[in-house]
Nucleic acid binder design. Sequence first.
DNA 1: TTCGTGTGCAACTCTGTAGTTGCACACGAA
DNA 2: TTCGTGTGCAACTACAGAGTTGCACACGAA
Lengths: 114, 114
Amino acid sequence: MDQRAEVVDTVLAALADPTRRQVLDLLAARGQATATTLADGLPVSRQAVVKHLAVLDAAGLVDSIKVGREVRYAVRTESLDTTARWMAALAADWDRRLAKIKRVAEAAEQKEKS
Amino acid sequence: MDQRAEVVDTVLAALADPTRRQVLDLLAARGQATATTLADGLPVSRQAVVKHLAVLDAAGLVDSIKVGREVRYAVRTESLDTTARWMAALAADWDRRLAKIKRVAEAAEQKEKS
DNA sequence: TTCGTGTGCAACTCTGTAGTTGCACACGAA
DNA sequence: TTCGTGTGCAACTACAGAGTTGCACACGAA
């Protein structure tokens, strides 16, 4: 697998944490925010939020820009979209395999009867 | 949120682990398998596989049936599908919000110029 | 019944990481 | 320049969970 697998991996790991999903929710609601202001609306410290934002950044789920002395974050949709497509494709793949296995099983059953 | 959020939560947590994704891959390839036979094709012990299967089962990603004295597992697609849809909807939601924020920002900029 | 093998249960280790606190530094405003 | 506040860095604690090993039990086959 190419780097797409890498993206999926980091995105899944990033989304697996409830606090990080909260961070993303807040960020999506505000459009743009700093770690300090995000921490106000969350039950954790600023430093915890900073760490979560670093993970989200590594997964490509957020973007950061320096404005003066503060760092503003904003959500990105590309990685999430990639992962959603991967997951849908995986579900479709499973369905395909299951259907195939079912056909084989039924064919074997028919043969047994005859 | 209802139980759909619960599903998404457990599915994300389940898929976040690389070994569990391997287990699912193997299971999808074989259609049906026991923890013991799955452990043969994986770099971990049978007990580790059993634990992973328990997590996957709790997330609704696999199904188990007892056949004689062995327990056979098979993949399920419903939960994965639900999560894929949730993720796609989330990406769309973010896009919507970002577009809205962009419009507001541009409108404010226009006003400032005049 | 006896033997072999697949499962289940429990205790344990160990690593990763979420979270905290404390302090130093940077930078904008008065 | 001085003060206030937002960031960054580092050390530390604590807990969850991935993985192992050992043993008891269940059940099919000879």
